[in-house]
Structures are given as C-alpha cells and as structure tokens.
Nucleic acid binder design. Sequence first.
DNA 1: ATAAACCTTCGAGTCGACTTTAAGGCAAGT
DNA 2: ACTTGCCTTAAAGTCGACTCGAAGGTTTAT
Lengths: 126, 126
Amino acid sequence: MKINEVSKKYQIASDTLRYWERVGAIPAVSRDSADYRDYDEEDLNWVSFAMSMRDAGVSVEYLIDYISLFRQGSHTVQARKDLLNDQLEMVGERLFKMQKSYNKLKYKAEHYEKIDKDYKGKMGVH
Amino acid sequence: MKINEVSKKYQIASDTLRYWERVGAIPAVSRDSADYRDYDEEDLNWVSFAMSMRDAGVSVEYLIDYISLFRQGSHTVQARKDLLNDQLEMVGERLFKMQKSYNKLKYKAEHYEKIDKDYKGKMGVH
DNA sequence: ATAAACCTTCGAGTCGACTTTAAGGCAAGT
DNA sequence: ACTTGCCTTAAAGTCGACTCGAAGGTTTAT
C-alpha cells in the first residue's frame, strides 16, 4: 500500500507518516523496488497504534522510546509493558479530566443565562 | 488573591495566567493599588473556565473569540451559546476518540504477548 | 517520448502555546 | 535603609509536532 493510499485510508497527512518514520515513532516501513514506501499489514498496525496513541494525547517522544525498546529485542518486553502501563495511567487521567471538563461545559451550555453574567466590567463600561 | 496564590491554588503557572490575560483568553483581571493583579471571585471563575476548556483540548484562539464576544455585551449571548455548543460537540468527539484509544491501549497492555511480536524486521536483524 | 502525477530525502519554515529574559517597581522583614 | 522576594511589562526564545520547499527520480497516461 503506497503512502498516499495510507494517507487517505487513515485520514492522516503523508508528511506526518514520513515524519513519524523519520524520527522513529514507527518502525521503518517496507519499500518496493523503486524505494517507495509500501506499507504491509504490520506497518499499518504500527501506523494505527501511533494514531491511537497520539489521539490519546501521548507524545511522539514516548512513541520513539517505545519503538526503540521494541527494536532492541524481546528482552525489553517487560520494559515495554511498563511503558505502556505508565501511558495507560496517564491517558486515564487525561480522560477523567476531560470528562469533568466536558460535564462542566455541558452544564454551562445548558444553564447559560444563569451563569455568564453580562460584561459590566472593571473597565468603566456600563 | 495575588497571582502566585492563584497559581498554587489552581496548579497553573503564573506565566500562563499572565499570558492568557495578555492575549485575551480571559478578561482583564482586577488590580490593587500597586497595579498588582488581585483576582476576585469572578476572575477566578474565568481562570477556572479557561482551564477546563484547555484541559478539554479547546484552543486558546477559541477562548479569545469567546471573551471577545463576551466583551461586546449581551446582544452576543446567542453567538456565545452557539460557540459553546460547537465546542461541546468537538470536545465530545475528542472524548469519544480518546475513549476508543484508551480501550485499544488497555487491550494491548492486557494481551501484550499475543500482540506485539518480536522485532525480526526488515533490516536484516534476526 | 513527453507530460502529469506520483514518489524520494533533506533542510528549513510554521504554528500554537507557552516560557524566559531583561529591566525595573513595590513590600515585608530586620 | 537595605535586602529578599514578589510583582510589573515587553520582547524574545523555546518546544513539540508537524508542514513545506527544493531538487530530483519513477510511473502512468496519452
């Protein structure tokens, strides 16, 4: 699968796909005879994983660390699990915070008049 | 309430509080005789609102637009409500995406061995 | 065979959101 | 009165994450 097809299928800029690969946020993608990227199923799984992580607010730096461990072989499995669980916890907290914010916002939207008083202000406007 | 107290109470950098005020993401804060910021209850409500919005992933730009409408007076109430509902929707989508990502991640963490195969790779490493 | 539409890398540019620095004013303790 | 610490603004700097531009190679359609 060529980069532009991936880009369309996953709704992500091809520049971003190249960028992730360049910095090591996903492993090196397979190439065809012309040295064009040719994403196989495993490559697509990594793209999908990276997208999930980024959507969840995980930094690119973390992905780089994760892939770096991955490349070092199977003796890093525990370290990878630990990293994953750290992130799981952080994402959980973000999620919780967001839910709270969402509820606050929703409340404000539903009770608008009672909450946002008019601007009478401290700048002499009446 | 002075800026550093607010900073500690809400766990937010005082630099950020000044920044938000400077760009208009919150309305101008009250000042004491020495021209020091002296946050009253209303100011704190704005800080709290801005924090919620930022936590929910809403851009500073949006906050600026919102406050700008607010300053223009009560005839902007409907526009403000509309803006708020737009954001509510966007936050809802973000939240949904994050939940999906969180679940994926959780699944991966719980079924680790079955999912992340060892790196045998395309780079000749065995 | 030539143009249009892909693809490549490398380096530089952009953007959002802070964060720091510089230069100085005010305030509380000794 | 002096020192320590908090406050001020304005402008510049940083950081993360892309995003773009230049220069060039490949593939596909006519």
